[in-house]
Design a protein around this nucleic acid. Sequence first.
DNA 1: TTGAGTACTTTCCACTGAAAAGATAACCTC
DNA 2: GAGGTTATCTTTTCAGTGGAAAGTACTCAA
Lengths: 224, 224
Amino acid sequence: MVAASKEGKPYHHGDLRAALLTAAEAELIEKGVDSFSLRGTAKRAGVSHAAPAHHFRDATALLDAVAAVGFSRLADTMRGEQALAGPGKSEQFVAAGVGYVRFAIDNPEMLELMFGRSRTDGDHPDLARHAEAAFSVLVNAVGHIRGRHVFKSEEGWRDVAACWSMVHGYAQLVISGRMGFVATLEFDEQRGVIEDLMRRALPDSAFRMRDDSAVPTQSGRPSF
Amino acid sequence: MVAASKEGKPYHHGDLRAALLTAAEAELIEKGVDSFSLRGTAKRAGVSHAAPAHHFRDATALLDAVAAVGFSRLADTMRGEQALAGPGKSEQFVAAGVGYVRFAIDNPEMLELMFGRSRTDGDHPDLARHAEAAFSVLVNAVGHIRGRHVFKSEEGWRDVAACWSMVHGYAQLVISGRMGFVATLEFDEQRGVIEDLMRRALPDSAFRMRDDSAVPTQSGRPSF
DNA sequence: TTGAGTACTTTCCACTGAAAAGATAACCTC
DNA sequence: GAGGTTATCTTTTCAGTGGAAAGTACTCAA
């Protein structure tokens, strides 16, 4: 970290990597994910358009890093809602879903980036790690209700898949403007809707005894 | 429609609009939604890169038209699954969801295009019409179970929102490779999973009596 | 002080979507 | 048919993109 010299901008930025992440997010929010421009990002950060290449291999790598920040913030938002909710397992579970949707509504372009098909977070361990951490918030919420042993069976992962599908689908449809009946609501007024959805996804009793007798598969579980 | 002259290609294509739609879909499938190239599409169709401008205002308009085809095919796929399923309301409902997921798996790039945030189908009546038609397949399936009167209340739209969110979220997560535990399954083996999800979204009895007493709002209902 | 390496800029290239203007063929009226 | 009109398609051009390559400015260690 280098202090800026008094006159003019210094040749060395000092912390360009962090500045680029910030600039890239601003660019993302303003231009949208498919009009995102690396040059525009560089201009925002006040450097030449080729400077980012020193910190990120290419534009995709930069966006991957932005997505990693997004997953980290998604986890924070979910945990934040949980902190505000009551201590019961059920309330904590619902709060995780509420946080998910809140994040989506507050960061629609980010969600698009994070879950777009073009992202291949297999080859970006940092991204995968942050995504995994966000995922675990939801998994834990389900686990506290069902009991952690459920993750030894496929059925437990079905519960997770249902909850995740529900909340993710809802979030995506809301931010793409396809959920007209909640569009006019303040977020707090949506809480009831989200709670309804979450309870449907993880019903108290139904479908518990279905016997699929599939081999427990840790490697094949759903994950971010 | 004009027959191609015997030698060389004729100056006038004959049905360039249709050819461009086909070429654009091939380009979409091959390059992906964010590497899609108008010039590449024109080359596929065997015309100059400026020719498409006569049939589609710009690249976005072309992709909107492709998305409209996609919605039409989505509706076909859902109805196709329903035709194969038993006649019961419940089976028909599940089949709609199965068709939705099948379409997504068979046309992942298309789904990305159709539901991406950048699509603004408000100003594209044709796209909106096809999307609406696909939507109605799902709505009707719910309506047959719940009774058509439910759409006079917000509760009915909640049922639709739940089913749609569930199936859409699942489809998106599957095609973006985030549902590991089904990735190795043949599609037919996924049917049980999808049926499970659909039944969770529209439980037989639960949550029916919740009294939200919201004003019936036809204009605010969820829609494609 | 100097040599080496890192951070950044400048220049360049191939590609993109779009606009403008020119070329060709089909249509329409007579 | 013949002529004019119009729609379709091509060529040219331009601004903008990401990335490669080469040059410049700075830092730091010996």
